[in-house]
Write a protein that binds this DNA or RNA. Structure first.
Length: 545
RNA sequence: AGGGCGGUAGCUCAAAGGUUAGAGCAGGGCGCUCAUAACGCCUUGGUUCCGGGUUCGAGUCCCGGCCGCCCUACCA
């Protein structure tokens, strides 16, 4: 019986372009989604732009436009970037949508009715010049403990002290560059403590990774505090129905955006929303996120869902960050590469492949080593994998009218390749893509060894042995076909070109069971091009700023 | 500062406490010529970050350092 799975990636913030750091997550998720579909599972992949919050409001103000114009423009850019990287969403929506407003208000009201919302006065920094309350991060000043200059209003990057913005020496609003004042305001809070028991149970299983579970223990031990979910006008977001002039904090409606995007999908396809979100749903809901936002997704989010009468997620899977040549991405070093800039210099599948070659199931950061990237892609994909097809195709096309033989000379070898699919599938399922890539590369080596040992080029020269060449190349091409099937979640375009070359049905996970025999293939055209270090250098140069 | 995670060959990564720590790539040598200078065979390369400890046995477990990343609830 096939599974029904709703998959999400974290919502990119709608105030800037997608970059190669973001893409780790979307590529990781897309690979998993494509794998599930190839296995015959029903897998729906949704995402959205995170289109609310102070930074978007201020950015629009800076650009002299309405927030709506900004987020509309960014939405189109994001959609194009993802599409060009082969990230195949069923729905890429926006949190500033009717669906999200309806769901956010609904969840809020249910939480309120359940006694999970509290109101109380807090003191916050206020920028009189700009006429707005300031998030802690929008106040900068000297650290009260170590004296470091120009620190955020909530903590010091230099000594690690945590404090309130009022404690800073010489606090300055980053909005107006003036000194902010303290002002009282009533805020709404989500009473997370009400869900302490539920959350302990929920996080105890394998819904979260062991590293995250360790992390959560800390939160439980220090006690769950109320979560401030309102912001005062002016704020770009949804106004709270029973609190005029107050808006939902962007992080309240952001995860609800997952549901909203799915609801949007339901609207256009007739899929049942409740089948996935009702408390008794037997469908799976899986969130892919970065390790930095684990607590939003493993504390607030499941608690909100439980409190509002929805099902909780089946799993929340966090990944690490991207470094480039061992360091944080940096504009001055040119390693802060946008998705678009990458696409102007290199094919998207190479990045998909390289990320896959680095990704495991844990939270470790992954490194894009630019030298390694060039060598690895050229060696694995062109030198090993595509080479198998390239070296066999000519013999079959020229010598045998492009026709594959009626049987395999070494069915046992083929069976070994086909049998490897089980372990590879388990690795995809558990997000151990680096293991997938290693397994396939090892099989590609064996395929090349096979061809090397049989020496079809020598046999072709002798009339007595010429007939063996067709079988050997048929064997080689079938081994190639199996490997392409295994890599199809990572390299969808290459897989499509390979299917066209082999003139076979679209490959799925069961395709390797039956080899392609007594069948006409097409003329071979290079499936992938080798890359040169110069292309990477040009990309880095174009990203330097 | 506290907490979490990590540190293994030039590079990228593997190794349920158990042979002499392994692969791929890069480097060196040989072979081959079907293939996008692709492929095959052989080969160099290690104080497993440092210092202690537990154990018959430690890359792995414990303690203390160093380095990197993340979190610390109002950046998103």
């Amino acid at each position: 019986m096939s599974r029904r799975i709703l998959v999400t990636s974290a919502l990119p913030y709608a105030n800037g372009p997608i970059h190669i750091g973001h893409l780790v997550e979307y590529i990781q998720t897309d690979i998993w989604v494509r794998f599930q579909r190839l296995r015959g599972n029903r897998c729906i992949y949704v995402c959205a732009d995170d289109a609310h919050g102070t930074p978007i409001m201020l950015r629009a103000r800076d650009e002299g436009c309405e927030p709506q114009e900004l987020i509309d423009r960014v939405l189109e850019e994001h959609r194009a970037d993802f599409a060009d990287f082969g990230v195949e969403f069923d729905s890429f929506h926006t949190t500033h949508s009717d669906e999200n407003r309806e769901l956010s208000v609904g969840i809020y009201e249910r939480l309120r009715e359940g006694g999970h919302i509290a109101r109380r006065e807090i003191t916050q920094m206020y920028d009189a010049q700009a006429g707005m309350f300031l998030p802690d991060r929008f106040v900068r000043g000297g650290c009260p403990r170590c004296g470091a200059e120009d620190q955020y209003g909530d903590s010091c990057e230099s000594c690690g002290a945590t404090y309130t913005p009022a404690e800073l020496s010489d606090p300055v609003s980053v909005v107006s560059e003036t000194r902010p004042v303290e002002r009282e305001s009533e805020h709404l809070f989500f009473r997370l403590e009400n869900f302490a028991g539920m959350l302990r149970d929920w996080t105890a299983g394998d819904r979260v990774q062991p590293e995250v579970r360790n992390k959560l223990r800390e939160w439980f031990e220090t006690g769950l505090r109320d979560w401030d979910i309102s912001r005062d006008a002016p704020y770009w977001g949804f106004e709270i129905p029973d609190a005029p002039g107050k808006y939902f904090y962007v992080w309240l409606d952001a995860p609800i955006g997952y549901m909203a995007s799915f609801l949007h999908y339901c609207g256009s396809t007739g899929e049942s929303f409740d089948a996935f979100w009702a408390p008794d749903s037997d469908a799976e809901v899986v969130h892919f996120i970065g390790k930095d936002i684990a607590y939003f997704h493993t504390l607030f989010w499941p608690a909100m869902l439980a409190g509002a009468g929805y099902r909780t997620p089946s799993a929340v899977w966090a990944h690490g960050f991207l470094t480039v040549d061992g360091e944080k991405m940096s504009k001055s070093r040119g390693t802060f590469v946008s998705a678009r800039t990458y696409l102007e210099h290199l094919p998207p599948e190479y990045l998909r492949y390289y990320y896959a070659a680095k990704l495991g199931s844990g939270l470790d950061d992954i490194d894009l080593n630019l030298d390694d990237f060039v060598l690895r892609v050229n060696s694995d994909l062109v030198g090993k994998l595509v080479n198998i097809a390239s070296r066999c195709a000519g013999f079959v096309v020229k010598g045998f009218d492009a026709r594959l033989s009626g049987e395999l000379p070494e069915p046992e070898l083929y069976a070994e390749f086909a049998a490897a699919g089980e372990e590879i599938a388990a690795d995809y399922e558990s997000r151990e893509y680096a293991r997938v890539v290693r397994s396939v590369a090892a099989l590609a080596d064996r395929a090349n060894q096979y061809i090397d040992a049989r020496q079809p080029w020598a046999l072709a020269k002798d009339e007595a042995t010429r007939d063996q060449v067709q079988g050997i190349c048929t064997q080689g091409l079938n081994l190639f076909r199996v490997l392409i099937a295994y890599l199809k979640p990572i390299l969808p375009e290459t897989a499509a070109r390979s299917e066209a070359f082999l003139d076979c049905d679209p490959l799925d996970w069961d395709s390797p069971r039956e080899p392609l025999l007594d069948h006409r293939i097409r003329k071979f055209k290079p499936l992938l091009k080798r890359i040169e270090r110069g292309q990477v250098d040009a990309m880095i140069e174009a990203s330097r700023g």
